[in-house]
Every structure is written in C-alpha cells, then in structure tokens.
C-alpha cells in the first residue's frame, strides 16, 4: 500500500512544485502581513477606521482574519487536485497493473485516500506554524482561533476530496474528472443549504424586507462558527470520508479495474 502512495505522490510531483511555490508565497505574505499589522499601513488603517467609527474593532479584526485566511487556504487548494492522480493513472493504463499487484481492492482505494490526506496534512501543518507565528506577533486572532479555522478549512478540503474520489471511482475513464469535481462542489453546496436551511430562509427574508440594514454580521457568524465549532466540521468530514471510502470500495470491487 505504501508503494501505491509513493506512486500517487510521484504523480503529484508537478503539483508539488506548485505546492512549494504556494508555501513560499504564503510565508512571504505572512511576514509582510505581520510587519504591516505591527508597524505599517494595516495598523494605521485599523486604528483610523475604529477611531472614525466607520467600522467596529470587531469588523476590522474580522476583516484582517478573512484576508489572512484567504491565503492560508492556498496550500490546501494546491494539493486538493486529487483528480490529477486519477488522470495520470488513466493515461498510463495503471489500473490493470494495480489489479495484478498483491493488494486487495480496499487497500488500493485506501492508498488513494491516504496519499491525498497526507498532502493535506502537510498543508495544515504549515498553516499551523504560520498561525502560531501570527498569533504570537499580532493580536488579530488567538492561536486557538487560528487552529479552529484551519481545522474547519481542512475538514472542508477532506469533504471535497472524499467526494471527488468517490465520484471519480463511480465514473471511470478519461475526461470525466471535471464532472466529479462539479458534482462534489454541488453536493457540498446542497449539504450546506440543507444544514443551514432555516438560516438561509431567514437571510432571504431579510434581504427581501424593505428595511434591510444587514451588516457583515452573517459573514462574521460563519467565521465565528469556523473558529469555535471546528469540531462539528471535523466530525462531518470524518463521516463523509468514511462513507466515501465504503462506497468507493464497494464500487471498485463491483466494477474492478477502476483504481
């Protein structure tokens, strides 16, 4: 199984280069952010906005957090293209070779999950290191808050990758990768709407009402949920991952030669 994981990571070699560039980019932006937040324009702007009552301190803080998160999620996105491995296997006709190896179908499927999650874990680890530095050097967010958000983002990526794998196993063959990706995103969106249906209804009602004076609170709600309720995202991710694995194994065993 380890051998297949090594092969998968070799397939992602090209992606790994992108990953390295992203890591370097994230590190540079982090340093620039810290410097600006402490001594530069960011700190001046924050003080000014709070003094002029344009935005509350919370808003300023949350905005800074959002800006930070945008680039902190990049390492995840860089390795999240799990489809690349499927396409490479397809191009080489590797499924046949894999079928002749002394590895059972569940092990072959598991190796695909593990190699993707190993790369995601590297992304998460890097983000945690940056988060530690940022929480130490700035007062934007506590380390626990950062970890919560990273865990939530990691959970979302795990959900996305798990869904993509199961859809790709269900739809073997060349050129079906995009469909798997689209289906994964649609499923995630549908899941989100289903879970937050009442809130979304409320939000739509507010938008429709005449005295609509909605602030950015809703967005901050999500941010707070990501910070404080990361364990819920993690639980959902684990559940999706397990279900996805079980379904993938069942399909792969029935179809054979797809992974």
């Amino acid at each position: 199984m380890k051998g297949l994981m090594i092969k998968d990571i070799m397939c992602l070699k090209k992606q790994l280069m992108v990953f390295c560039y992203v890591i370097i980019g994230v590190l540079i932006v982090s340093v620039m952010f810290v410097l600006s937040a402490r001594f530069g324009n960011l700190s001046v702007a924050a003080r000014q906005m709070a003094a002029e009552n344009n935005m509350s301190v919370l808003d300023v803080n949350n905005l800074a957090t959002l800006a930070l998160l945008t680039f902190m999620f990049l390492p995840f996105a860089a390795v999240g293209d799990v489809l690349f491995v499927f396409e490479e296997d397809n191009k080489a006709g590797f499924a046949k070779v894999a079928g002749a190896l002394p590895l059972s179908v569940p092990k072959r499927v598991l190796s695909r999950y593990l190699s993707v999650f190993a790369l995601l874990a590297i992304g998460a680890l890097l983000d945690i290191v940056i988060a530690f530095a940022l929480s130490f050097l700035t007062d934007i967010l506590s380390f626990a808050g950062f970890v919560g958000i990273i865990l939530s983002a990691l959970s979302m990526m795990i959900i996305y990758c798990s869904l993509t794998i199961v859809f790709r196993v269900a739809m073997p063959g060349a050129g079906k990768g995009q469909y798997a990706q689209i289906l994964s995103l649609l499923t995630m969106a549908a899941g989100f709407i289903l879970i937050r249906f009442e809130k979304i209804k409320e939000l739509i009602a507010q938008v429709k009402s005449e005295n609509n004076n909605m602030g950015p609170e809703r967005l901050w709600d999500l941010l707070t949920a990501m910070k404080e309720k990361a364990w819920i995202f993690a639980l959902i991710a684990i559940t999706v991952m397990l279900v996805s694995y079980a379904v993938s194994v069942t399909i792969a065993q029935r179809k054979r030669g797809v992974i």
Partner: peptide, 25 residues
C-alpha cells in the same frame, strides 16, 4: 505479470519503479 502494454507511468524511471515495488512486494 507482463501485459501487452506497459501500464507504468511514463514519467517514472526504473529507479522510481524500484522504490514503488519494494514497498508493495
């Protein structure tokens, strides 16, 4: 097993195959 088509990834070298196979067989 030897198939009519190679089935190994074209970017792989024999050295890469050795690393992969020693972790499988």
């Amino acid at each position: 097993v030897v198939f009519d088509e190679m089935g190994f990834h074209e970017f792989m070298t024999a050295k890469d195959l050795n690393i992969m196979m020693k972790n499988i067989y």
